[in-house]
Each structure stands twice: as structure tokens, then as C-alpha cells.
Simulated scan of single mutants.
Amino acid sequence: MGLVLVEDKSILKTVFLDFKQLTKVGLSVSVVFTSIAGYLLGADTIEFTTILMLATGGFLMVGASNAFNQVIEKDIDKLMQRTKDRPLPSGRMSPTIALTIATLFTISGIVILYAINPKCALFGAISIFLYTSAYTPLKAVTPLAVFVGAIPGAIPFMLGWVAATGKFGIEAGFLFMIQFFWQFPHFWAIGWLQFEEYNKAGLHMLPMDKKDKGAVVQMIFYTAVMILISIAPVLKSTGSLYIYPITAIIVAILGLLMLFYAIKLYKSESNLDARKLMLASVFYITVLPIIYVIDKFLH
């Protein structure tokens, strides 16, 4: 009896871990965090019901995109060390179960976002569609896939603002652009670290498909654009989205940290500096929304 219970617990643990891997729970939580920050920036009065719906809808939206992605790429995932133990390539989960989870997540996520307002549901649907129907297949065709993937990846920050205001204006556009341009140095740093693995699997994840100084020049360029857009609200030209000069200085310093590691990578072309750039980018996109929200509540 005790052995059966231990086996049952072990099976349940495996199922739970596979579900976490299929839907990339960690990534989904970070998206929820950014969406809530966007909501707090846009809201005049905070409604906790809307925050809960946004968090749930956003979580389901990202979970669905990742599940569809892993169904489409199950054979490619078998070829890479980093992904070969995922539930589908390892054979622990069938594509039918994964597709069922992805479909249920999609329907539930869009329904919940629609209950906030129709624009939220529209952006949620666009995000899932572009990620699964454009970005995922394009990765095996062209490095331009990263540009396409940056569109759904940039929706969360903006989605929070749209949930709070029901409008897509210049403010939501700026929040979208911050996250859009941030993704290039972030994903290209990952592409640099995983270049050999991606190459083996036939995925094009670096600009011009080369691990060279030319790729790093593009990382530097997009980091610089991201910094300029992130501090632009200090000029009071972005509608009701405004930050204090001291906030702009802090945000600029955060961005310069990324730029510092991008320049170091240009000089060294080493995986160590690519990893530092990737970690600096994660730090940036985690801290920036918090700084923006604190700034808003100081107004």
C-alpha cells in the first residue's frame, strides 16, 4: 500500500513538472508581472478583480503559446540538449494531450481577457496567433523570426494599460516599444549562447545567422534604441505616461548596464559576456516596470 502511494506521488509529481515545462510557468509568471505593472500605470482606480482576471488571462495566453510551440517543435526539440527532455520529445506526454491543454488555455484566456474588455481579448488572440503561426515556423527559415516573435513578446506591458483604460493610445504604444526593442539584445544573447545547438536543429536565431561582431553591433544598436524609448516619457510627449527626471536617470543607468555588457561582448565575443548581457536584460525588464509604477504613485 505504501509503495503504491509513493508511486502515485511520483507519477503526480512527473505530471505536474511536465505541465510546468509545457506551459513554461516561470515565463508565464514574468509576463503576468509585466501586465500587472502596465495595469497599475494606466489605472486611475485599482480594481483587484480586473488584476486577477488580467493575471489569469495573461498566464493562460502565454501557457497556450508555449504549449502550441512545443507541439510544433517536438521533433526539433529532440535534437537539442537543452530541450530533448521536454515532455513531448521525451515521449512522456502525447501531442494530443499537449494540444488539448493549449486549446483549453487559448479559449479560457481569450474569454477571460474579453471579460475585461474586447481590446484585451484581441491583443491576446493576436499574441497567440503570431507566436504559433508565424514566429515558431519562421525560426527554421530566417533570422527575421526574432522580429516577428518580438511582437507577441511585447504585448504584455501594453496589455495591462489596455486592461486599465480600454484604449490603445500613445502610452500603450510606448510600453509596447520598450518591450519590443528590449527583446533583440535579450534573445540574441540567448542565440549567441545556444548558437551551436540552434544550428544543429536548423534554427536561425542570430542576425545574418552568424556568431560574429556584426551580430553584436545589432545588439548594441537595439539596446541604445530601447534606452532612448524608455526615458522618452520624461519629455512629457507620451500622453499621460510621464516620468520624473530622476526616474529617467535611474532607467538610463539600468539600460547603460546592458549597453556595457553588449560592448564587452563586442570586444571579447565570449559566451561569458553574452550570459552577462542576457542576465542584465532580465534584470532590466524586471526592475523597469517597478520603477515606472513607483514613479507613477509619487506623482
Score class of each variant (00 low, 15 high):
residue 1 M to K: 15
residue 4 V to L: 15
residue 8 D to F: 15
residue 16 F to T: 14
residue 20 K to M: 10
residue 22 L to V: 03
residue 29 V to S: 02
residue 29 V to K: 13
residue 35 S to R: 07
residue 37 A to P: 02
residue 48 F to Q: 13
residue 48 F to H: 13
residue 52 L to P: 09
residue 54 L to K: 09
residue 57 G to W: 06
residue 58 G to A: 00
residue 59 F to L: 04
residue 62 V to I: 10
residue 64 A to H: 01
residue 71 V to K: 05
residue 73 E to F: 04
residue 73 E to W: 11
residue 81 Q to F: 15
residue 84 K to F: 07
residue 84 K to D: 15
residue 89 P to H: 12
residue 91 G to I: 15
residue 92 R to W: 00
residue 93 M to W: 02
residue 94 S to G: 14
residue 97 I to L: 08
residue 99 L to T: 06
residue 99 L to P: 06
residue 104 L to D: 03
residue 107 I to M: 04
residue 109 G to H: 00
residue 116 I to S: 06
residue 116 I to T: 09
residue 117 N to V: 08
residue 126 I to S: 15
residue 128 I to Q: 07
residue 129 F to Q: 13
residue 130 L to D: 11
residue 133 S to I: 13
residue 137 P to C: 10
residue 138 L to V: 07
residue 138 L to D: 02
residue 148 V to A: 10
residue 148 V to T: 12
residue 149 G to Q: 06
residue 150 A to M: 07
residue 152 P to E: 08
residue 154 A to K: 02
residue 158 M to C: 13
residue 161 W to V: 01
residue 166 G to W: 01
residue 167 K to T: 08
residue 170 I to N: 05
residue 173 G to I: 04
residue 174 F to L: 13
residue 177 M to W: 12
residue 178 I to P: 01
residue 183 Q to I: 05
residue 184 F to H: 01
residue 185 P to K: 00
residue 187 F to K: 10
residue 187 F to R: 09
residue 190 I to Q: 09
residue 190 I to A: 06
residue 198 Y to V: 08
residue 198 Y to L: 10
residue 200 K to Q: 10
residue 206 L to R: 07
residue 210 K to L: 15
residue 211 K to A: 06
residue 213 K to H: 11
residue 221 F to D: 01
residue 223 T to S: 03
residue 226 M to I: 02
residue 232 A to F: 13
residue 236 K to F: 15
residue 237 S to V: 15
residue 242 Y to L: 01
residue 244 Y to H: 12
residue 246 I to L: 14
residue 251 V to R: 01
residue 251 V to C: 03
residue 251 V to E: 03
residue 258 M to H: 00
residue 263 I to A: 00
residue 276 K to Y: 11
residue 281 S to P: 07
residue 281 S to Q: 08
residue 285 I to K: 00
residue 292 Y to S: 04
residue 292 Y to M: 11
residue 298 L to M: 08
residue 298 L to H: 10
